[in-house]
Design a protein around this nucleic acid. Structure first.
Lengths: 120, 120
DNA sequence: CCAATGTCTGCAAAAGTTCGCAGGCGTGCA
DNA sequence: TGCACGCCTGCGAACTTTTGCAGACATTGG
């Protein structure tokens, strides 16, 4: 029964792709809709080259899709539900370290949620 | 607004912990309830030392809890819902490579689900 | 007490990831 | 055509993770 092994490897690849704070922020940033590389770089405060490198990884596993318009490359989530699923992981993080109790998870979720689409 | 950065780092740590095929299999293996190290090692077909190393990582981030009985250490999921959440990621894996279409996701999910608690 | 068993930890080599930088490619504007 | 812009890729250095192995520790049975 090798399917299990195959599936676990596929899932591990996905988790590895998500195992980087900047890529997670990027995914949350795309929740509002498509955005070009420079726009993402500005809102995450990262060099555009690095954003492009992250996007190349996400693209390789079809987590984002690209649309070109002139010299700009616009990216969007291939699965819009992905961002919500990522936030569903909040209950599993070890809250002892930096957050005090379960209420703060809600605070964090709120902070990161739809309402908050201003500069930063 | 640094909370966002903090949360994304916490989430990235969690994803990094899950970004290993054997640890994912381990988590799925514990879905059925607690199990000792040797038992896990047998059902995953891995050396017990390695299982212990993986468990040490999962323990450090409070994803599993330990109960000792004599010389055996029994482990269980700290959040039983974790295993289900992991499987919710199946729609996001890139299915072109080894699986043909969406039906196979269901097959994979079924293969890995509750019914399947026989040897392997 | 001694030996066997089940598990844990430390270490170092191998493998993998991240990051900055240099240079390349395509597009648009003067 | 030439230049600036937006983005992409390749490369090497620094860092992190994985793995097997050797040895340690605690518990149990003889």
């Amino acid at each position: 029964m090798p399917s299990r092994l195959i599936v676990s490897r596929e899932l591990a690849d996905l988790f590895r792709l998500l195992a980087h704070a900047d890529r997670l922020r990027l995914i949350e940033d795309l929740r509002g809709g498509e955005k070009d590389v420079t726009g993402i770089a500005q809102s995450l405060d990262l060099p555009a080259t690095r954003v492009s490198q992250h996007l190349a990884l996400l693209r390789a596993q079809r987590l984002v899709e690209e649309r070109r318009d002139g010299r700009n490359h616009f990216y969007r989530l291939a699965h819009p539900h992905l961002a919500a699923w990522v936030l569903d992981a909040l209950p599993f993080i070890d809250i002892r370290q930096r957050l005090e109790d379960a209420d703060h998870i809600d605070t964090a979720r709120a902070l990161w949620s739809v309402a908050d689409r201003n500069p930063h």
